[in-house]
Simulated scan of single mutants.
Amino acid sequence: MRNGSTIRRRQLARQLRLLREQAGLTIEAAAPALDWSSSKLSRIENAQQLVDVHGVRSMLDHYGVGGEKWTELIELTREARRPGWWRAYGLNDYGYVPLEAEATLLREFMVMYLPGLLQTEDYARAVFDASATRWTAEQKEREVTVRMIRQKRLTSDEEPLELSAIVEETVLRRPVGGPAVMRAKLERLVEAAALDTVTFHVLPTAVGAHAGMGGAFTLLSFDRLGEPDMAYVEHPMGAVHLEKDEDVARARVVFDHLRSAALGPAESVALVEGMAEKL
């Protein structure tokens, strides 16, 4: 479920750049020997252009790389080029889903609706119905299916994904999809919170002003790949990936402040259960 993501491409690009530098070559010196322009080599090293196996072999030859490192880089090149499972549902390799597919830990703060990994199908449909995007029935069902596939990693033994989620209390109380959808949503939260991979917090409305009033965000960690953390911010006009150390560090601080202000996991589940009983 993890093939072809931008994370693999970035991992490959970084290693290729490091190997060139270790060989004592500048981009201007290396590119002509590879029959490439300097701009093409720069794009490859910045993960803006994907390179094929033949190109990587030429690079490794020129940089004097062999043995296990050769084998490792060739396999990584193949992995980076394999289409991810999301392609079958009309998604490309540059959105959020490919990033999540490589992540080992998500820290999410949500202010308008539940995290996608905790939604029921009917709740997801209701969210899509309310979107400014004009989905066709087929597109909407495709998006819902993708969301359900993503949730499987929360219970996967081979590719587990850990989720630490904080949601504002208003998210739980917002009437999305009607009473039956609301009740199912709350029951789903209780079930998910019992998973070893899920930590669920509610930020009470009574807290008042808080560090996350600027909006929702997600922190992605890639411990298995040794990649640096990344922050992802979705907004009505699109989304932004934040990779600078200072931006990601600020997101971590905000998340920690919010977690400190939120109810603990047991209290959060009790609140959800109480709300479900009243419906």
Rank of each mutant, 00 (worst) to 15 (best):
S42E: 01
S42V: 04
S42M: 09
I44M: 09
A47S: 11
Q48R: 15
Q48T: 03
Q48L: 12
Q49I: 00
D52N: 15
V53G: 00
H54T: 06
G55A: 08
V56G: 04
R57C: 01
R57Q: 05
S58G: 06
S58T: 03
M59R: 00
M59S: 00
L60N: 01
D61G: 00
D61I: 00
D61C: 01
Y63C: 03
Y63A: 03
G64V: 07
V65Q: 02
G66M: 06
G66I: 08
G66W: 11
G67F: 15
G67D: 04
G67S: 09
E68C: 07
L73I: 15
I74P: 01
L76V: 08
T77K: 02
R78V: 10
R78Y: 04
R78S: 08
E79M: 10
E79Q: 11
E79A: 13
R82F: 08
R82C: 06
P83E: 12
P83F: 13
P83W: 12
G84V: 07
W86F: 11
W86H: 03
Y89N: 01
G90A: 10
L91H: 06
D93F: 08
D93P: 00
G95R: 05
V97L: 13
P98L: 13
P98W: 09
P98D: 04
L99F: 13
L99W: 05
E102P: 00
A103K: 09
A103V: 04
T104H: 04
T104A: 11
L106V: 14
R107E: 05
E108W: 11
M110T: 02
V111A: 15
V111I: 08
M112V: 14
Y113K: 12
L114V: 08
P115Y: 10
L117K: 09
L117N: 00
Q119E: 11
T120E: 12
E121H: 09
E121F: 14
E121P: 10
Y123W: 15
A124H: 08
R125T: 02
A126T: 05
F128A: 15
F128Y: 14
A130E: 06
S131Q: 06
A132K: 14
A132F: 12
T133L: 14
T133Q: 14
R134N: 11
R134L: 14
T136Q: 09
A137P: 03
E138C: 09
E138I: 13
Q139H: 07
K140L: 15
K140A: 13
E141P: 01
E143S: 11
V144E: 05
V144C: 07
V146C: 10
R147V: 04
M148Q: 13
M148D: 08
I149H: 12
I149N: 07
I149D: 03
R150Y: 11
Q151R: 13
Q151E: 07
Q151K: 14
R153A: 12
L154M: 13
T155P: 03
T155M: 12
S156F: 13
S156A: 12
E158M: 07
L161M: 14
L161T: 01
E162A: 13
E162Y: 15
E168G: 11
E169L: 11
E169K: 11
T170C: 10
T170H: 08
R173D: 02
R173H: 12
P175M: 12
V176N: 02
P179T: 04
P179Q: 05
